[in-house]
Amino acid sequence: MKLITAIRTFCLLLCMALTMPSHALSYDDIQARGVIAIAVYNDFPPYSFKDENGNAAGIDVELAKALAKGLDVALDLRWMTPDETVEDDMRNYLWKGMNLTSEDGQRVKADVMLRVPYDREFAMKRDDIGHPAHELVHMFAPYQQERWLMAYDAAKLDRPKTAARFMYHPVGVEVDTVPQFFVTTAYGGRFREKSRTYPSTPEAFQALNDGEVSIVMGTASQLEWLHHNNKNPQANEHLTELAFPLLGRSEWELGIAVHSNYRQLAYALEDIVMAHINNGDFVRWGEKFGVDFQLPERFRPEPEVTNEEAIAQTP
Rank of each mutant, 00 (worst) to 15 (best):
N278A: 12
F289E: 02
H276T: 09
H276I: 08
V258G: 11
N261P: 00
G248V: 02
E270C: 03
E251F: 14
N279L: 11
I256L: 13
E251C: 10
Y267L: 14
A275R: 13
M274F: 06
A268K: 13
H259N: 13
F282W: 07
H259R: 09
V283A: 15
L265S: 04
V258M: 08
W285T: 05
Y262R: 10
R263A: 11
I277S: 07
A266L: 05
N261M: 07
V291G: 11
I272D: 06
Y262Q: 11
H259Y: 07
A266H: 00
I272K: 12
K288P: 01
G255T: 02
G255H: 00
L269D: 04
H276R: 12
E287R: 10
V258S: 06
V258N: 04
H276V: 12
E270S: 07
R249P: 05
G248P: 02
D281Q: 14
Q264Y: 01
D292Y: 00
F289R: 10
D271A: 15
R284A: 15
F289V: 03
Y262D: 08
D281M: 13
I256Y: 07
R284P: 04
V273C: 02
E251A: 12
L269F: 06
G280S: 09
G286E: 00
D271C: 05
L254A: 12
G248Y: 05
Y267I: 15
R249L: 12
R263F: 12
L265R: 08
A257N: 06
H276Q: 09
S250Q: 13
L265A: 08
H259E: 05
S250K: 12
G290Q: 03
R284G: 09
W285N: 07
N279C: 08
A257V: 01
E270N: 11
A257D: 02
V283F: 14
D271I: 05
W252N: 14
F282S: 09
S260V: 01
S260K: 05
L254R: 09
A266N: 01
E253F: 01
E270G: 05
A257P: 02
F282N: 05
I277D: 04
D281K: 14
A257L: 02
A275P: 01
N278S: 13
F289I: 01
G286W: 00
A275N: 08
D281H: 15
D281G: 09
R249F: 05
I277V: 15
A268C: 03
L254T: 15
E251N: 10
N261A: 15
D281L: 13
F282E: 06
A268I: 07
G286M: 09
I256Q: 11
G280D: 09
H259D: 10
I272E: 02
W285P: 07
G248Q: 05
E270F: 06
V258W: 04
I256N: 10
R249S: 13
E287N: 12
D281Y: 09
N261L: 07
Q264V: 05
N278L: 11
R284Q: 15
V283L: 15
A268E: 00
F289A: 11
L265C: 03
I272L: 09
A266K: 00
L254N: 12
D271F: 07
V291R: 11
L269N: 07
I256A: 11
N261Q: 08
Y267Q: 08
H259S: 12
K288N: 10
D281N: 15
S260M: 03
W285S: 11
I256F: 09
E251T: 15
